[in-house]
Amino acid sequence: MSHEETATEAARRSERFGALPERIRPEDMVETTPAVRHDPDRDAYDSDDFAVRYGL
Score class of each variant (00 low, 15 high):
1 M>T: 08
1 M>C: 07
2 S>K: 10
2 S>E: 05
2 S>M: 05
3 H>K: 14
3 H>E: 14
3 H>T: 14
4 E>A: 11
4 E>N: 09
5 E>Y: 03
5 E>V: 05
5 E>A: 07
8 T>H: 10
9 E>H: 10
9 E>G: 15
10 A>I: 04
10 A>F: 07
10 A>L: 14
10 A>H: 04
10 A>W: 02
10 A>R: 10
10 A>N: 05
11 A>K: 15
12 R>M: 03
13 R>N: 00
13 R>D: 02
13 R>Q: 03
13 R>G: 00
14 S>V: 07
15 E>W: 13
16 R>E: 13
17 F>E: 09
17 F>I: 01
17 F>R: 04
17 F>D: 13
18 G>F: 13
18 G>D: 06
18 G>C: 03
18 G>Y: 10
18 G>V: 05
19 A>K: 13
19 A>G: 04
19 A>F: 09
19 A>W: 08
19 A>N: 09
20 L>A: 10
20 L>K: 08
21 P>I: 07
21 P>L: 06
21 P>Q: 04
22 E>R: 14
22 E>A: 11
23 R>L: 07
23 R>T: 06
23 R>A: 15
23 R>M: 06
23 R>G: 03
24 I>R: 02
24 I>S: 01
24 I>Y: 01
24 I>G: 01
24 I>A: 02
26 P>E: 01
26 P>I: 02
26 P>Q: 01
26 P>F: 03
27 E>T: 08
27 E>G: 06
28 D>A: 13
28 D>K: 07
28 D>P: 00
28 D>I: 02
29 M>A: 13
29 M>F: 00
29 M>N: 01
29 M>C: 12
30 V>W: 02
30 V>L: 09
30 V>S: 04
31 E>T: 10
31 E>K: 13
33 T>A: 10
34 P>M: 12
35 A>G: 07
35 A>F: 08
36 V>N: 05
36 V>Q: 13
36 V>P: 01
36 V>I: 15
37 R>P: 11
37 R>S: 13
37 R>D: 14
37 R>L: 14
37 R>K: 12
38 H>W: 11
39 D>L: 06
39 D>A: 05
39 D>F: 02
40 P>S: 10
41 D>Y: 11
43 D>Q: 07
43 D>N: 08
43 D>E: 14
43 D>A: 12
44 A>F: 15
44 A>V: 09
44 A>H: 10
45 Y>V: 13
45 Y>P: 00
45 Y>S: 02
46 D>C: 06
46 D>R: 07
46 D>F: 06
47 S>H: 09
47 S>A: 11
47 S>P: 08
48 D>Y: 05
49 D>G: 03
49 D>Q: 12
49 D>S: 11
49 D>W: 13
50 F>W: 12
51 A>K: 13
51 A>P: 00
52 V>H: 01
52 V>M: 04
53 R>H: 09
53 R>W: 04
53 R>C: 03
53 R>Y: 06
54 Y>L: 05
54 Y>R: 02
54 Y>F: 15
54 Y>W: 09
54 Y>M: 03
55 G>D: 06
55 G>V: 00
55 G>M: 08
55 G>Q: 05
56 L>S: 10
56 L>Y: 15
56 L>F: 12
56 L>W: 11
